[in-house]
Design a protein around this nucleic acid. Structure first.
Length: 613
DNA sequence: TAACGAACTTAGGATTCGGCTG
DNA sequence: CAGCCGAATCCTAAGTTCGTTA
């Protein structure tokens, strides 16, 4: 009934239908009822009775006990050796400690494209010149960035890196052991009696802010986090973490309605950063499970919702029409919700609700298709979304209406925002928000594609290729892109060389077969006949190897700019993959690596081959 | 109801690892 | 054994969502 994964007992094969159709909150309760270390086992020990369980199901409570060591702080800045100089206007200049540290941030990045951007340079220079970073004298001298010469600093760090790489084995081993020791000391916490891995146990080191895309704040100084900036969260009765010697925490609090262990406010966007648990933890696993259960509930009502929004395309109310068209995009194209963003604070990116007129173009007819919408905008992380989509006629007509008398920079959906959209979705299904559609459509697509692409008689390699294709279909739907790997051309060439070599071998084998056949015909003895068979077999083997290489090449080419990891990690119900593995005899290790197996431990244990999303 | 803040998930690029090859 | 390459891991930015406040 129960099974131990890592150091946690999980319910074995919780029937997925058990919680189907209930509120998200009920999932947790069902889990708790069945999870021994949350319920029965504790009671048996007599340490906690029903009262404990009651407390546990208290609204918003995430844990009962939390103990940890606090975050790890990287060592302070080490000044440059005397022979490494910074030059201003051709003259060597010894900088104050603070100013020098910031100079090294820039120097280290010299061969990065960032440092060629004007915004980056200006932001850096502005922050560098601030009083608390540069002394008055330094500020008097250092007036222009283009007179600053960081090349010696840059070289120093490049050399240092090389030296580290060239270190003898034992030295490297020592460094590794030290890192392991840190992981051991700071990398875990005790949550409700179980040792759980922390996701990010180090505070973020200082440096220059690297925003994505055209970020107005790129190059600004990201300050060093000190214990005095950090809030610790743990249980009241636990051993309170010790701040580093000579320091104090900003605050120690005991809030069991949140999941973070420590937090601080970051100085670029003034937002809060958190130390949280690793995805392998029960806390995160449970959350993940819930997420997919909500998506599965959407499966039950999605037809109704689709009918409803089609109906709303004809509504008298503009508000409703816009909502219905937006929802159609979110559903059909898996667009993100698209919150409004503060102008000038971040890069100019949009999602569905924040689309502007300039982001779409309408074509009554395009490439032989009717009512085509051409999307072209920058989404999350400044990744371009470009797509030409034939839409249903009422959608097309509505879009024309929404765009009437508007400037390119105006909102397409001017009567809509994410909050009103989500409010509406909440009415359609408990727990439904815009992002659930992405999860649902991703997972259902994987399931359908796997069904369509997998043949039971295929070998393992072919099955994995099918899996990757299904995975890729989802990644394309969700627009998960990556920069073409730097080594792509080269590795593609290598593969091509292999293919060519194989072809040559094949041609040779063919000739040999021909010769063997002729020989057999002439001699008509057993030996020459068996030789023909041998050559035939060799030929078949080579042919198989060639097709394998060719599929590999196709796979690689198709994957050039597609990132499979994001959907695998965040959108695909792992139980679909696990069930597929079991059904087709594919070892789960072929699909999930070690980290992924840890994250999806709950699903690997729970799903049998019958599982259906 | 808009603005803000908090908490959490999702994201791609950078860095490191580890196995293979010449 | 160095040097290369793809995979794994690390890193932290950038989203979504929801609750609170003015």
């Amino acid at each position: 009934m129960w099974t131990c994964i890592g150091n946690i007992l999980w319910p074995k094969r919780v029937a997925p239908t058990l919680c189907y159709g209930t509120k998200p909150g009920c999932l947790l309760k069902a889990w708790r009822r069945q999870c021994p270390w949350l319920g029965a086992a504790q009671r048996r020990e007599g340490s906690a009775g029903p009262k404990w369980q009651e407390e546990k199901s208290e609204d918003g409570v995430k844990w009962k006990q939390l103990e940890h060591k606090g975050p790890y702080f990287a060592p302070l800045y080490e000044p440059l050796p005397d022979e490494v100089h910074f030059y201003y206007d051709g003259n060597a200049m010894k900088l104050s400690l603070a100013a020098e540290e910031i100079a090294t941030f820039y120097g280290k990045m010299l061969d990065h494209e960032y440092t060629t951007k004007e915004v980056f340079q200006n932001n850096f220079f502005n922050d560098w010149q601030k009083a608390q970073e540069m002394t008055v004298e330094e500020k008097k001298i250092i007036k222009h960035l283009d007179k600053c010469d960081f090349t010696e600093i840059h070289k120093y760090f490049v050399d240092k890196n090389e030296a580290r790489k060239a270190l003898p084995k034992e030295e490297k081993q020592k460094l590794k052991e030290e890192a392991d020791r840190l992981q051991e000391e700071f990398g875990y916490c005790i949550l409700d009696g179980h040792r759980e891995k922390i996701g990010n146990f180090k505070t973020e080191p200082p440096g220059l802010f690297r925003g994505r895309g055209d970020h107005p704040k790129m190059g600004m100084l990201k300050k060093r986090i000190m214990p005095e900036d950090v809030i610790i969260n743990c249980s009241r009765d636990s051993k309170i973490p010790e701040p580093p010697p000579g320091h104090k925490w900003k605050e120690v609090r005991f809030d069991n309605t949140v999941t973070w262990l420590a937090s601080w406010t970051e100085n670029i966007q003034n937002s809060i950063k958190y130390i949280m648990l690793n995805p392998s933890s029960k806390l995160k696993g449970e959350k993940d499970w819930q997420k997919y259960e909500v998506a599965r509930r959407l499966k039950g009502v999605v037809d109704k919702i689709r009918f409803q929004y089609r109906f709303d395309w004809k509504s008298r109310e503009m508000r409703k029409r816009q909502r219905a068209v937006a929802l159609y995009f979110i559903d059909k194209l898996a667009l993100r919700a698209g919150n409004e963003k503060e102008e000038g604070e971040t890069a100019d990116t949009v999602g569905c609700c924040s689309l502007r007129v300039e982001h779409i173009q309408l074509h009554r007819e395009l490439d032989g298709q009717e009512h085509v919408v051409e999307f072209d905008f920058l989404g999350k992380d400044c990744i371009r979304y470009y797509n030409k989509v034939p839409v249903e006629k009422p959608v097309f007509k509505n879009l024309q209406l929404f765009m009437e008398n508007k400037d390119p920079g105006d909102d397409l959906f001017d009567r809509l925002n994410t909050s009103t959209l989500n409010k509406h979705l909440q009415d359609l299904m408990d727990g439904l928000t815009a992002k659930v559609f992405r999860t649902y459509n991703a997972s259902i697509t994987l399931q359908e594609q796997l069904r369509a692409l997998t043949s039971a008689e295929d070998n393992i390699a072919a099955k994995i290729l099918s899996y990757n294709r299904a995975n890729r279909a989802v990644a394309i739907l969700c627009n998960h892109q990556r920069a073409t790997p730097k080594t792509f051309e080269k590795s593609m060439q290598n593969l091509q060389t292999k293919i060519d070599a194989k072809k040559e071998q094949l041609a040779m084998a063919e000739q040999e077969l021909k010769r063997a056949k002729a020989d057999a015909k002439a001699r008509k003895d057993v030996k020459s006949k068996s030789n023909v068979d041998k050559k035939k077999k060799l030929l078949a083997k080579l042919e198989e190897q060639l097709t394998k290489l060719c599929t590999q090449a196709t796979d690689k080419e198709e994957n050039k700019q597609v990132a499979l990891g994001t959907s695998k990690l965040n959108y695909l119900d792992p139980r679909i993959s696990v069930a597929w593995c079991k059904k087709f005899g594919v070892p789960v290790e072929k699909i999930y690596n070690k980290t992924q197996r840890e994250k999806f431990a709950w699903a690997i244990d729970m799903a049998d081959e019958e599982f259906e999303f």
